[in-house]
């Protein structure tokens, strides 16, 4: 997948709008400010893609949503153990109860993921629907590689839109990944009016 600077800029911008909308939704859910780092648009070989996200054998809690409609994609929220605990506490859920914690994080993922792809779809003129979230605690590599596998049938490259959110005055930072299928990348670029630039 060869993407030029203009296309990567456009993808960064749409990730920025998606995650900005998601951060606002999370902020009203938690009742405190949520900051956002400038998203990264990474076009990488599969093997490098996992390393770019984090340490493959690190313990994380992830919320995964499928995206259906005009394009296939996966949204993955990645929390380190401390951030997962913090966000549960902020929501009044006992982090020591794994079932409750996963369910609460699933709900966070549902709200963040829906607002992210809603904003993205609006900007690109695409109908996008989220599937119900699945929350899982496991190794980062196992989660990210599995999300990538579904997108990697026709290409050895992966496009990752990687945003980081930080909850103000709390030990809570987490990543939001948008991973489109190779076909989905094309649809996204077409929607943004950037398909011809390649």
């Amino acid at each position: 997948m060869e993407l030029n600077e203009m296309q990567l800029d456009g993808l960064r911008e749409i990730a920025n709008i998606g995650s900005g909308t998601a951060a606002t939704a999370l902020s009203s859910m938690l009742g405190r400010a949520v900051d956002l780092n400038v998203p990264k648009a990474l076009a990488l070989e599969l093997a490098d893609a996992v390393d770019a996200v984090g340490t493959p054998d690190a313990d994380v809690t992830a919320v995964v949503l499928g995206v259906m409609g005009d394009l296939d994609a996966t949204v993955v929220l990645l929390f380190d153990p401390t951030s997962a605990e913090t966000i549960c506490s902020l929501l009044g859920v006992d982090p020591a109860d794994p079932e409750m914690a996963l369910s609460a994080l699933g709900e966070v993922g549902n709200i963040l993921g829906s607002s992210y792809i809603g904003a993205m779809g609006q900007m690109a003129g695409l109908e996008l629907e989220p599937s119900p979230p699945a929350a899982v605690s496991d190794m980062l590599g196992a989660i990210v590689a599995t999300a990538l596998a579904a997108t990697a049938v026709d290409t050895d490259f992966a496009l990752l839109l990687d945003s980081e959110m930080l909850v103000e005055d709390a030990e809570c930072a987490f990543g939001v990944l948008f991973v489109p299928s190779s076909e989905g990348v094309g649809r996204l670029l077409t929607g943004l009016g950037l398909a011809e630039a390649a």
């Binding site: 093997a47 490098d48 980062l140 590689a145």
Partner: peptide, 24 residues
Amino acid sequence: ARMAEIAVSRHEADVLVALGLGSC
């Protein structure tokens, strides 16, 4: 051996590693 990679060796000191296998 990262995603889609193959590692081989015959040296006693080596360890071949696949980190975080999920559906892979």
